[in-house]
């Protein structure tokens, strides 16, 4: 043991220099060139509800609850990316099931004319990160009627918009289709 301690300390020090300091510097330098926005996270600009020009992160979902926007999914952290996490509610938790029912009822009240059987389960359950930037295409489509009414835009125009913003599976064959809610809502504001 004794004869191993000093070599172990020296080796540890060298490993930190090489696998932490040098490695991180190399990755960071490459990131300055290849990563979007120099590795600070890809952003997108918009005029927000207070008429200011602001920016948000494309990958970080935002809370949309107003009737004139496409809603995002429920979130356990309220879309505040200072933290992240899911509800961690078990499938048989009665309080949880009640809150899901409430979310469903609220959704139906705001979207008259939509039948329960049309509401996809992903629209009334919280994501794992609480920051899910996407909704499913189905979840976007069932909100079209509401938004068309509030914004006085034809439903056909909105359906085209949702279709334009539906991202297909990777290479067309891997994974689910999705709609980035932030990008969709920015495009929605720009329709006028």
């Amino acid at each position: 043991m004794k004869s191993n301690i000093l070599p172990a300390i020296k080796l540890t020090f060298l490993c930190i220099l090489f696998f932490v300091v040098a490695y991180t510097f190399v990755v960071w330098s490459i990131g300055q060139v290849v990563a979007p926005n120099n590795g600070k996270g890809e952003t997108v600009s918009y005029i927000n509800s207070k008429d200011n020009l602001k920016y948000g992160f494309v990958n970080i979902g935002q809370s949309f609850t107003h009737d004139n926007y496409f809603w995002s999914r429920p979130s356990a952290v309220g879309y505040n990316a200072a933290g992240s996490g899911g509800s961690n509610k078990g499938p048989t938790n009665t309080d949880y099931l009640k809150s899901v029912q409430q979310t469903l009822d609220t959704f139906l009240v705001h979207n008259p004319g939509i039948k329960k059987s049309q509401v996809p389960v992903d629209m009334i359950t919280a994501s794992g990160s609480g920051l899910d930037p996407d909704i499913s295409p189905k979840a976007a489509m069932i909100q079209v009627a509401r938004i068309a009414k509030v914004r006085n835009i034809s439903e056909e125009k909105l359906i085209v918009l949702v279709n334009q913003h539906t991202e297909n599976p990777l290479l067309g064959v891997f994974g689910p289709p999705k709609v980035n809610v932030l990008k969709l809502n920015i495009a929605l504001d720009n329709l006028k």
């Binding site: 990131g31 990563a35 890809e42 200072a82």
Partner: peptide
């Protein structure tokens, strides 16, 4: 990194959302 994973030493960013809420976004290398 090509797919948008952050690699920055800047701290949390404070942003205003489209609906006008103020939230923070954690980042890092």
């Amino acid at each position: 990194m090509l797919n948008g994973m952050p690699m920055t030493f800047e701290g949390k960013d404070t942003i205003q959302t489209m609906q006008g809420d103020t939230v923070q976004v954690s980042r890092g290398p």
